[in-house]
């Protein structure tokens, strides 16, 4: 069964990949491709939280910290050294280092549950405040001013490694979507490994897992670092997309938004958070375009209704429906 599931995942991803990479770039306008690039970057971020929360039980309000740190690192390194590829690696490295430090602090303090949520939220707010207050031009790293509330503008796009040719809109799209698919595949694989199974057992019952001899702290820390690496990369890709990074990424609104994506899409799945991120962003863009109702009000009502009607999230609900349908189909066969 597990093997079958893994095959379904691989084949599904492959099909999605062919459509997204092979067909979409030729079928839609470049500005739509740019939008899709953004959605893909955000889907990567959503999967990173979906992984640590849905499979590691770590409800972090601070996933945006790693996203933001990734974005800032990319901007600072890319502008200082004129090397976007190096910057991308640096973004991941810095995010992982941060996660190891923060994770050690949190998990060795046995923080969990809502207290973990608040400590990560607080750390995110500290970043928000400090970044905002560094607006004077004396705050700079190398040649790049931190920029305070206004942020760092003029972030360079990615280039073909070894050359100085920037990636076009379509190429950036293909790259980011490919990364998203690889992240999905990679995380799906990780969950099925021994590591992933132990992580899940810790989520289900930490005491039992520890009695069986597993150091829960170590496993959570590893998962946290993996999540941070992915979030940091998403942040760098976001910086590439928007050309500017500012402290908004550390704000409480953005942190909450990621949690909403994961919950609406479906906690405990990987595709759910990604789908949640894409759908909600499309909805937000559409609301700003049609303007029939205050966008905040519409989103607010949607969240409430969704929690009440589809508490498990979209994807688990769909899976449930499909399972029922296929079950009936299987039974009706002789």
């Amino acid at each position: 069964m597990r093997a079958l599931q893994s095959h379904v995942t691989t084949i599904g991803t492959l099909v999605a990949g062919i459509v997204l990479v092979g067909i979409v770039p030729f079928a839609v306008a470049p500005f739509t491709l740019a939008d899709l690039t953004l959605y893909a970057a955000m889907a990567i971020l959503a999967m990173s939280l979906g992984f640590i929360w849905g499979f590691g039980g770590i409800l972090s309000f601070g996933q945006s910290v790693f996203f933001g740190v990734g974005g800032y690192t990319y901007a600072i390194v890319a502008l200082n050294f004129d090397s976007p590829s190096l910057a991308l690696l640096a973004a991941i490295a810095v995010a992982v280092t941060g996660a190891l430090l923060l994770g050690y602090f949190i998990f060795w303090g046995r923080l969990s549950d809502v207290y973990l949520a608040v400590i990560t939220l607080t750390i995110s707010l500290i970043f928000f405040m400090l970044m905002n207050s560094m607006s004077s031009s004396i705050y700079r790293i190398g040649d790049v001013p931190i920029g305070g509330y206004n942020g760092i503008p003029g972030i360079p796009p990615l280039v073909v490694p070894g050359t100085d040719r920037s990636l076009s809109v379509a190429e950036t799209y293909v790259l980011v979507v490919t990364v998203a698919l690889l992240v999905y595949l990679g995380l799906s694989w990780l969950i099925r490994t021994k590591f992933g199974r132990i992580l899940c057992s810790i989520k289900e019952n930490e005491v039992r897992a520890e009695l069986l001899g597993y150091d829960a702290r170590l496993y959570k820390l590893a998962a946290f670092a993996v999540g941070a690496a992915i979030a940091g990369m998403a942040g760098a890709l976001f910086a590439v997309y928007s050309g500017l990074i500012n402290p908004d990424v550390f704000g409480i609104g953005f942190s909450a938004q990621i949690i909403v994506w994961v919950m609406l899409g479906g906690l405990g799945t990987l595709i759910g958070p990604a789908l949640g991120a894409v759908l909600i962003q499309m909805l937000v863009v559409w609301l700003g375009k049609v303007q029939v109702i205050d966008a905040n009000m519409a989103l607010g009502v949607l969240f409430i209704v969704a929690v009440l009607l589809v508490p498990a999230g979209l994807v688990p609900r769909l899976q449930g429906l499909l399972a029922v349908a296929f079950g009936n189909l299987a039974r009706s066969r002789p």
Binding site: A29, T32, L38, Y149, S242, G243, L244, V284, G288
Partner: peptide, 30 residues
């Protein structure tokens, strides 16, 4: 919607999709 992320999206859509002749707006410097 006071959301920085949307500025890039709409600016692209307006210039490339709607092919507007001029763009007005934005409040914050970022």
């Amino acid at each position: 919607q006071s959301n920085n992320q949307l500025f890039a999206q709409y600016a692209r859509e307006l210039t490339a999709g709607e092919r507007v002749d001029v763009v007005f707006g934005a409040t914050t410097s970022s």
